[in-house]
């Protein structure tokens, strides 16, 4: 029994290295997507201390808008900018209608408000686009759909091109975001707002402009996530649950760290896959991916209460 649990899985990993590599790759791809969602959370938390629960539904909503526009006859090239416009309008109306009246309220109220936004968007999305499953317009957007076959260690590893595209897109997005946050005036303003609201306001940074901007960026991230995830699994409201997958990532990486979101996302993606394949399915009846990331992040948090890369929590009386 002990041998089965403690040693045998590792033996299997070495006995079938090509299968192990496949598992790693799958985990890595989903980890990158978790990291993307977590990034949306982090951006908004950093700049406004709002725990944005609506990020998951924003992913669904943006993907639905894109697919819905395309099915109405708008060509894919035009549908993307139009979707971006919709996300901008969404960001603006959220700021105007929800956030502005709630400035300075306790965190939990703002958190609840984002759940309200989630419900509203679920209802609205279903009303406009219908609740049924849709296919992402992968080919029309020019995403390749073939697969590479590699043969390391005399084995066989399958790498799908759309996964590769997903990873590339994610890396581009993250690099672009880091440049934007660190090198541009607006990016500096966002970080200043994250450090101290009042100080940022007093040097003339406009709270509402930055909030719209940040929610818009979160919307762009949501669109990218929606496109690549939708290409893998189709577009439906079930996608919304992947937002929950981003939460342990946030815990692990820290709520306000961009690099934490990326490292945490990839770590969680890989570890949950490995645990599911080598321990979950043989011993626990499978489907452990729902809780393993949370328990894992919880254990890490017991040693570092602010996550791996989060800002140190300093408490004063």
């Amino acid at each position: 029994m002990l041998y089965d649990v403690l040693i045998d899985p590792f033996v299997q990993m070495f006995a079938l290295p090509d299968f192990f590599l496949q598992v790693l790759w799958e985990g890595f791809v989903s980890g990158v997507l978790y990291a993307l969602i977590a990034l949306g959370f982090v951006l908004i938390y950093k700049s406004s201390r709002i725990f944005n629960f609506a990020q998951g539904i924003m992913v669904v909503f943006s993907a639905l808008t894109l697919v819905g526009l395309h099915s109405m006859g708008v060509p894919a090239i035009a549908a993307v900018p139009l979707t971006l416009l919709v996300m901008y309008l969404l960001a603006m109306s959220i700021e105007r209608v929800v956030l502005r009246p709630l400035v300075n309220q306790p965190d939990i109220i703002l958190f609840m408000a984002t759940i309200g936004i989630t419900l509203f968007l679920i209802g609205f999305g279903q009303l406009v686009f219908g609740g049924d499953n849709k296919v992402m317009i992968t080919e029309q957007l020019g995403i390749p759909t073939g697969a590479f076959e590699l043969e390391p260690f005399g084995g066989f590893v399958l790498i799908e091109q759309k996964d590769l595209t997903a990873v590339t897109l994610a890396i581009l997005l993250v690099v672009g975001l880091l440049v934007f946050l660190n090198k541009t005036k607006m990016g500096r303003a966002i970080r200043a707002l994250g450090d101290d609201h009042q100080a940022a306001l007093s040097v003339g940074i406009s709270l509402s402009t930055i909030w719209v901007l940040v929610w818009f960026i979160a919307g762009v991230i949501a669109l990218v996530t929606g496109v690549v995830w939708g290409a893998r699994a189709g577009v439906s409201f079930a996608l919304e649950v992947i937002a929950y997958k981003a939460l342990p990532v946030l815990m692990l990486g820290g709520l306000e760290s961009v690099s934490g979101a990326i490292v945490g996302g990839i770590a969680i993606g890989i570890l949950e896959k490995i645990f599911e394949i080598y321990w979950g399915q043989p011993f626990l009846g499978g489907n452990t991916e729902t809780w393993f990331p949370f328990i894992f992040a919880l254990l890490v948090l017991l040693f570092r209460p602010q996550g791996l890369f989060g800002e140190r929590i300093i408490e004063r009386i």
Binding site: F111, L247, N287, W291, F294, L302
Partner: peptide
């Protein structure tokens, strides 16, 4: 028990561990 060490939103997410783990347990 983790609440003795973890606070705020970190704790909120930590309670989600209970949510997902227990529902999984009810099923399996």
């Amino acid at each position: 028990l983790p609440s003795l060490r973890i606070k705020g939103f970190y704790l909120a997410i930590a309670t989600l561990a209970a949510q997902f783990f227990l529902v999984w347990l009810f099923e399996k």
